[in-house]
Simulated assay, not measured.
Amino acid sequence: MSRAYGDDLRVLVLAAGASGMSARAAAARFNIGIAAAIRWLRRERETGERTARRQGKPRGSHLGVHETFIFDLIEGRWDWTYFEKVESSF
């Protein structure tokens, strides 16, 4: 997986775009991808966001929606084995 560009480069591209330079020209000047420059400038224009977003899959658990059910099972009978829990849930 590739890494995000540095914030100093992002600031330079956004400053060039704010001064009237097109996204394609800024991408060529600072040697970055055209799509990256277009995304950065669009995001700043639409939302004011200037920092890189977190890369990768969003954090979170698929079991979050079943949390109360699982805790109720554990509180009801704390010494269950995994197989007993699976059999009782069907």
Rank of each mutant, 00 (worst) to 15 (best):
D72S: 13
R24S: 08
M21S: 06
E87M: 12
L73D: 04
A25R: 09
V13C: 03
H66D: 00
E44Y: 11
Y5Q: 01
R3P: 04
T68K: 15
R53N: 03
G20P: 04
W80Q: 11
A18V: 10
T81Q: 05
I38Q: 05
S61T: 15
F30D: 01
W40Y: 00
E84C: 01
A25C: 09
W78S: 05
R45M: 07
M21H: 05
Y82P: 04
G48D: 08
G17C: 00
D72H: 08
F69Q: 06
A23N: 02
R10M: 04
E84R: 06
E46P: 03
L73W: 14
E75K: 14
E46I: 14
M1P: 13
G20K: 02
G64M: 11
Y82K: 01
R53K: 15
Q55C: 11
E84M: 08
R10G: 01
T47V: 10
I70L: 14
S89C: 10
R53L: 13
G76E: 07
P58L: 07
T68D: 06
A26E: 02
R50P: 05
T68H: 13
A23I: 04
Q55F: 15
T81P: 06
H66P: 00
A27T: 02
F71S: 00
G60P: 06
R54F: 12
T51K: 14
D7S: 08
H62G: 12
R42H: 09
V65F: 14
L73T: 04
L9T: 05
G60M: 12
A25L: 09
I70P: 10
L73Y: 06
E67V: 13
D7G: 11
V13T: 02
R29Y: 12
A15W: 11
E44D: 11
F90A: 04
S19T: 05
G17P: 02
E49P: 03
A35P: 11
V86S: 03
P58E: 05
R43S: 01
E44T: 11
A36W: 13
R24M: 08
V65Y: 10
R39A: 03
D7C: 06
W78D: 00
G33I: 05
F69A: 06
E49M: 10
A15M: 09
A37P: 02
E46G: 03
L73A: 08
K57W: 12
L41H: 03
R10S: 01
I34Y: 08
G20R: 01
